[in-house]
Nucleic acid binder design. Structure first.
Lengths: 224, 224
DNA sequence: CGGAATCGAGAACGAGCGTTCTCGCGTCCG
DNA sequence: CGGACGCGAGAACGCTCGTTCTCGATTCCG
């Protein structure tokens, strides 16, 4: 169907579908051969090892997600709508039949402590998304676009995990409404920086430190 | 050292440390035998298969996280402080040297589509945490404690993922500040339900629907 | 003391996987 | 026409892993 129907593309498409649905370690090269119709010999000519194929899979996902995000955001001009468009895109993706969580979070959890290339690809993707969010946050005139972008990034990842586990798109809505509240709060703080809306003990600027208690979870953790 | 030093406990402790740090599929039973000092024969007497050991590991993590959360929250009486204590606990955990993300998200991503027991354990844990959050949200007098609890759950999971990937405890702070904003917003909405603080087009109650665009991500997705 | 049960260490077994090699078969250039 | 090359299908190899079996050694109870 596609004009770009090279061997590399066919292998990558099959690997993407299988890796994303079943996980990397559960999918063998023979399954990729069966799904792509490309012999093992040619697969290993394009990708010298399974690890290289995994990294190419992640880079492909990164390109896809970034362009999809940018296209979806480009439909809006209002800064708030542009931010919320991210979460609308998330909803549509999460609501689709073949959503299985964030491929990068999954790959990191599965192979994190053992594959340098995977760690790099995951970090690159997440930091690219956050950079993109930072630009959107800056457009809204938020007082601290970096902080707001980090919060939005937390919402994005959390919504993907929650949606995958609960098998429901509702977390995308929860994240969207939370994002809207954060946007309004940042805008309110930018309009009236002298005082926040509520809270009897509130430093006017900056984000206060967490009160680090004496507990050390590692000592009582099961992993200790 | 521990009084409860049964064979089962020693096996579970070793399995917990290894599964959590390296992932389930990357750890073989021989490594658990070496780490626990319990022979394979006795391990298989306690746990009839590796899958059973994995499920016991997840249940143990569930008990640990729930009791740690409850203890930490019990130190506070103010409803807002009780909610924020959850994120302070998260910060301490995430900041520890042996934090490797959420064991349940990791296990689900790794084994999700293939192990019924794992899926059940993960869903039980996540729904238990959300029930706990719902109780805290109810105490704050929020208009929609269910919705607020879902938002907090998204923040929790997102902060764990972000912290694990970025290898930094900062996402816990981002989540905490976002949680505080959401709390204040919910309280404001409860105090003055007629009108929200900002936004020219705002339904006063309920959470609006996302504008589902004509795009279908599955068609342009790499997995399609 | 004696036999029976238990135990730990490790071999064994079967399966799966990543990667490479073999072997026919078709194809293309001289 | 002919030989060298490329190709796909699949076997083969080496490794790992989950699970079970073997085999001495130890221990426990009558």
């Amino acid at each position: 169907m596609n004009v770009d129907d090279t061997i590399e593309t066919r292998v990558l498409s099959a690997a993407d579908a299988l890796f994303y649905q079943y996980g990397v370690q559960s999918v063998g090269m023979d399954r990729i051969r069966d799904a792509s119709g490309v012999s093992l010999k040619k697969i290993y000519q394009c990708f010298p090892s399974k690890g290289a194929l995994v990294e190419a899979y992640l880079r492909r996902r990164d390109r896809w997600a970034r362009t999809a995000l940018e296209e979806r955001v480009a439909d809006h001009t209002d800064p708030e709508s542009r931010v919320l468009a991210v979460f609308d895109w998330l909803y549509d993706w999460v609501d689709g039949p073949d959503f299985h969580g964030c491929a990068f979070i999954n790959a990191f959890g599965e192979l994190g402590a053992g594959s340098q290339g995977v760690v790099e690809a995951v970090r690159e993707h997440k930091s690219a998304v956050r950079t993109f969010l930072r630009g959107l946050a800056f457009e809204t005139g938020a007082t601290d676009p970096d902080w707001l972008a980090s919060q939005l990034s937390v919402l994005l990842d959390g919504a993907m995990s929650n949606a995958s586990i609960s098998d429901s798109p509702a977390p995308a809505r929860h994240a969207r409404s939370a994002a809207r509240t954060l946007l309004h709060d940042a805008a309110v703080a930018a309009d009236a920086p002298a005082e926040s809306a509520a809270g009897p003990e509130e430093p006017p600027a900056g984000h206060e430190e967490p009160a680090a208690g004496p507990r050390e979870p590692a000592s009582t953790a099961p992993g200790g």
